[in-house]
Design a protein around this nucleic acid. Structure first.
Lengths: 203, 203
DNA sequence: TCCAAAAATGTAGTGACTACAAGAATGGAT
DNA sequence: ATCCATTCTTGTAGTCACTACATTTTTGGA
């Protein structure tokens, strides 16, 4: 899958737009920055922005990934594994990733930007919905009880939402290593508690 | 709280706009009808529409109510009652209301219109979020365990979502009395099953 | 060096929504 | 009945995201 210069340049333009957009959004808030400003800052035409990104929100949510994780994890797990276990493991991994020192401040800034914008909040909800649908589909592949699977997916999404909130509430903006360690333990306790509820309900 | 003629006329205008808008939306789909068309059909200026309704979606979601029910039910319940019981009862009542013969067809048409419009779906998600927040607050008033309460509210919202989907899937468009009775039994079974999961998890 | 594909641009328009100023209806006081 | 202040309604102008489409520029290959 070698990319020619043409395709490379295209990706380069796309990346440049995405980068400058993200910077502006984090700095001044999503709603306070217009697409025209992004285009100007990236030195391209407004149309070019829309050639690469179907909507303004896509400029912000560019590094996709988290919404495919759960379904993928379920599909890759051995057939005899309990789905809730699989999902908990997968969630814990993601959480630990986010708590890596370098990523933490950036990540909090991202979330705060989302929470400051109705449009980004709406998009996040939409994505969560898609996650639910794909997770339901994955669960349906391994056991045919649709209502149960749909419920499992919905409860997982709910758990994730609650835990993300908790993560934001518990983490100080500038975490010293000691504080971060403390927060991490608190977090993992909350994860265990929430997933215990799911397991006990669905088990 | 007697209303003068002025206020009465205002409400009348508002109602006229809402009615004609709803009719157009149900007939042709939310996204296919412009606010300008609604204004023209109601014989008012576009500005007048926005004087009464902050956004286009508010023209559709006018009869508010369902998102305040759960929090209110929790607040009105005796202190020793189990929240999950209270919520299940409240949910069942709402479901039975919707299954009343006269309302059923109308209601399905409403939901189909929502499902046909990204904007209305987004608004429904937003409202569900608000329901979660208000339910969490109500639960916090009776017991101080915030994480647990937040989780309860989120799981309730998830349950509601799943059951609403089920309701749409199970109900035929033109239900004969016999079919409707059958569907109702199936529905109540699903409600019991889903809330059993919540109870077992949260108990 | 020339050509065809594709990327980038510019123009014009739609539709929701806001700000604001001006016009019309109304309730109450004289 | 008349006048005034309130407020409901209207019209104008503008912003912003987004689309359609025609045109220009860039690029890879013959």
């Amino acid at each position: 899958m070698e990319l020619g210069r043409r395709e490379r340049k295209k990706q380069q333009t796309r990346q440049a737009i995405s980068d400058v957009a993200t910077e502006l959004f984090l700095e001044r808030g999503f709603d306070a920055v217009t697409v025209a400003e992004v285009a100007r800052a990236a030195d391209v035409a407004v149309q070019t922005v829309f050639n690469h990104f179907p909507a303004k929100e896509d400029l912000f949510f560019d590094e996709q990934g988290w919404w495919t994780g759960p379904a993928q994890a379920v599909r890759e797990a051995p057939a005899e594994a309990d789905p809730v276990d699989v999902l908990e493991t997968q969630y814990l991994q993601g959480t630990r990733e986010r708590l890596k020192v370098g990523h933490l401040a950036t990540w909090k800034q991202f979330v705060r930007t989302i929470e400051g914008s109705p449009a980004l909040l709406a998009r996040r909800r939409l994505t969560a919905d898609e996650l639910e649908r794909s997770l339901t589909a994955a669960l349906d592949e391994r056991a045919p009880n649709h209502l149960r699977n749909r419920l499992t997916a919905a409860l997982y999404a709910a758990a994730q939402k609650v835990l993300e909130e908790r993560l934001m509430a518990v983490l100080p903006d500038d975490a010293s290593p000691a504080e971060l360690d403390q927060a991490q333990r608190e977090l993992e306790r909350a994860v265990a508690e929430v997933f215990a509820v799911l397991r006990s309900g669905l088990g």
